[in-house]
C-alpha cells in the first residue's frame, strides 16, 4: 500500500497552491460570509485592487468572535494587516490585546450614535430585531413583555457561539438592566430552540418552525430586493433596538500600515459603502451619494437605538450570560 500513500501525499502537496506576487499583498482577516461569492468580498476586492496597485487577500475565519480568537492565537506573528468584522461587543477585548494601531481615518458617519474610536473604523451597522412573516403573523408583539405574554414561538442564537445571540443578550440588558433576568425567565417558554449560529436559526424560521427569529431590521430587505417578496417584516419593540456596529482595524505590527489605512478609507468610501447594503444586508456606515438602494426605504426604523460602549459591553457580558443560562436551563 505504499503507492496510495504516495499518491495521497502528492495530492496534498498539489492542493497547497503557492501564492507569490510582485505587487504588495494586503492581508485582511474577516468572517467567512464576507469573502463568499454572495458577500461583499468580491466587489470590494476588485474595487480596491483597481486603485491600490496591490493584491488584496481576504481570508475568511468563521464569524467575528472566531476571528478574534484566531488573532489572539497568532498574536504579533499574524500575517494579517487588517481585521474586518468585529463588532462593539468584541472591540474592548480586541483593543486589550494591544495588537491594534490607531487608524487615523475620518469619515462623515451616518450612525445613530457618535463615533470616535481611535482603533476601529465602522463600515456597516444594523438593528437586531425579531423577523416574522406578515401573512402568518399580522400583529406581532411590540415589546419583550408582550412577546413573553403571547403564545408565539421564537428562535434565538446562543450568545456563546453567535454574535447576534450575544447582541440579544445585550439588547435585553440595555433595555431592562437589573430586570433582565426576569425578562429572560418570562421569555423562556416562548423560545422554541437556541441555535449555534444565525444561519441555522434563519433556516428554521424560513422552514416554518417558529413564528419569529432573531435577526436584523434589514433582513426583510433581502427578501424584497433579491426575491421580490415583501412578506417579511421586523417587529418594532418599544424598548428600542440594540445595534450591531461592524468595524475594521489595522494591526500595529503590519509593515503595510499606510496601505491598510488606504483600505479602510476605501471601505468607508462611496464605492464600498454602496456595495455593502445589498451584499451584507446592513446599513452602510456612510450613506452613499445615491442614497440607500431601492427597497431599504420600506424598512421599519426603531424609534430608539440602544448600544453599550465597548467597555460597558465587556463588563456586563459574563453576568448577562449567567442570567441567560440560569433562566433558559430550567
Amino acid at each position: 500500500m505504499k503507492y496510495p500513500t504516495l499518491a495521497a501525499g502528492c495530492l496534498i502537496v498539489a492542493l497547497a497552491g503557492p501564492a507569490s506576487a510582485e505587487v504588495p499583498v494586503l492581508t485582511v482577516y474577516t468572517y467567512d460570509s464576507f469573502v463568499s461569492k454572495w458577500g461583499p468580498g468580491p466587489a470590494i476586492e476588485a474595487g480596491f485592487e483597481a486603485v491600490c496597485g496591490c493584491d488584496l487577500r481576504l481570508v475568511g475565519h468563521g464569524d467575528g468572535a472566531a476571528l478574534l480568537a484566531r488573532l489572539r492565537l497568532e498574536g504579533v506573528r499574524s500575517p494579517a494587516d487588517v481585521v474586518l468584522g468585529l463588532d462593539t461587543n468584541l472591540t474592548a477585548a480586541a483593543a486589550a490585546t494591544g495588537l491594534f494601531a490607531p487608524h487615523g481615518v475620518e469619515a462623515a458617519y451616518d450612525l445613530p450614535i457618535a463615533w470616535d474610536d481611535p482603533l476601529f473604523v465602522p463600515y456597516d451597522w444594523g438593528y437586531f430585531a425579531f423577523v416574522h412573516d406578515r401573512a402568518r403573523l399580522p400583529a406581532p408583539p411590540a415589546s419583550f413583555p408582550e412577546l413573553a405574554a403571547s403564545d408565539l414561538t421564537v428562535i434565538v442564537q446562543d450568545p456563546r457561539s453567535s454574535t447576534p445571540g450575544l447582541g440579544l443578550l445585550m439588547w435585553v440588558k440595555a433595555a431592562y438592566g437589573d430586570g433582565a433576568a426576569d425578562i429572560w425567565r418570562a421569555l423562556a417558554p416562548r423560545i422554541l430552540t437556541v441555535t449555534p449560529g444565525w444561519s441555522e436559526a434563519y433556516g428554521l424560521f424560513l422552514a416554518g418552525e417558529a413564528d419569529m427569529v432573531l435577526s436584523y431590521t434589514t433582513s426583510p430587505a433581502y427578501h424584497l430586493i433579491a426575491e421580490g417578496d415583501d412578506g417579511k417584516a421586523a417587529a418594532m419593540f418599544e424598548e428600542g433596538h440594540y445595534m450591531q456596529v461592524e468595524v475594521a482595524g489595522i494591526l500595529a505590527h503590519s509593515p503595510r500600515g499606510d496601505l491598510a489605512a488606504d483600505f479602510l478609507r476605501y471601505l468607508t468610501g462611496p464605492e464600498a459603502q454602496a456595495a455593502l447594503p445589498t451584499t451584507n444586508w446592513m446599513y452602510p456606515a456612510v450613506t452613499p451619494e445615491g442614497g440607500l438602494p431601492a427597497g431599504f426605504e420600506t424598512l421599519a426604523v426603531p424609534a430608539k437605538a440602544l448600544l453599550f460602549t465597548p467597555e460597558q459591553a465587556a463588563a456586563l457580558r459574563d453576568a448577562a450570560l449567567a442570567e441567560w443560562l440560569a433562566a433558559l436551563s430550567r
Binding site: G17, A19, D32, S33, V35, S36, K37, W38, G39, R57, L58, V59, G60, H61, G62, A66, R70, W198, S199, E200, Y202, G203, L206, A207, S219, Y222, H223, A226, W281
Partner: peptide, 28 residues
C-alpha cells in the same frame, strides 16, 4: 476547513454554509 479557513478554496459543505449565511436557503 473553517478553522484553517482560506482565501476562496471552499469545500462543498462550506459553500452550503455560506449560502445559508447569505439568506439563500433554497440554494443552500
Amino acid at each position: 476547513v473553517t478553522l484553517f479557513a482560506g482565501t476562496g478554496g471552499a469545500t462543498l459543505p462550506l459553500e452550503v454554509f455560506r449560502l445559508m449565511g447569505a439568506y439563500r436557503m433554497t440554494d443552500a
